[in-house]
């Protein structure tokens, strides 16, 4: 479900859950664009030598994935703030689920607040956060 205006948003609404593409090809593409081509992100073997279970998804890529989810939910709206806490590692080439829920709405500013979560395939939470999303008048 997408929302086209502030009036369509209800407190407690869930954004549609999505499975993010964190394949090695996608992470390599991100790291090249971000100039963050560190081996822990793009080389499973190297990441294991650093003590990880495999290559890990960059935290700022998780933030970008959450951003994309919000844009799909509310086309035309503007994210004015996104705050993410990196709680744990998310593995490249694993299944990662992103979700969000509306926790506040402000009629005057037409801004909604969303709680955000990224969960790994082992069920552990990798990223939590919040975003402020402004709707046009």
């Amino acid at each position: 479900m997408t929302v086209r205006s502030f009036e369509e948003v209800e407190l407690g609404d869930d954004l549609p859950n999505e499975t993010a593409d964190v394949s090695m090809a996608q992470v390599k593409k991100f790291c090249k664009a971000a100039k963050h081509e560190f081996e822990r992100f793009i080389d499973h073997e190297h990441a294991r030598k650093e003590g990880f279970a495999g290559a890990i998804v960059p935290g700022i890529m998780s933030q970008g994935i959450l951003t994309a989810m919000i844009h799909r939910w509310a086309p035309g709206a503007t994210i004015t703030k996104i705050d993410t806490v990196f709680r744990g590692t998310l593995l490249v080439d694993s299944e990662v689920t992103v979700s969000g829920a509306v926790t506040d709405t402000d009629d005057d500013s037409r801004v909604v607040e969303i709680d955000l979560t990224v969960v790994g395939e082992d069920g552990r939470t990798g990223v939590i956060g919040t975003a402020l999303v402004a709707f046009p008048a």
């Binding site: 999505e18 993010a20 593409d21 996608q26 992470v27 593409k29 991100f30 664009a33 700022i60 890529m61 933030q63 970008g64 994935i65 951003t67 994309a68 989810m69 844009h71 799909r72 086309p75 994210i79 004015t80 996104i82």
Partner: peptide
Amino acid sequence: AEACGETDPRFTDADHPDFQAQPN
């Protein structure tokens, strides 16, 4: 934007009139 799964053309299409970087 594409690597993050972005589908909004504001962030993926350089010819879009409001083309811009993802907020982060």
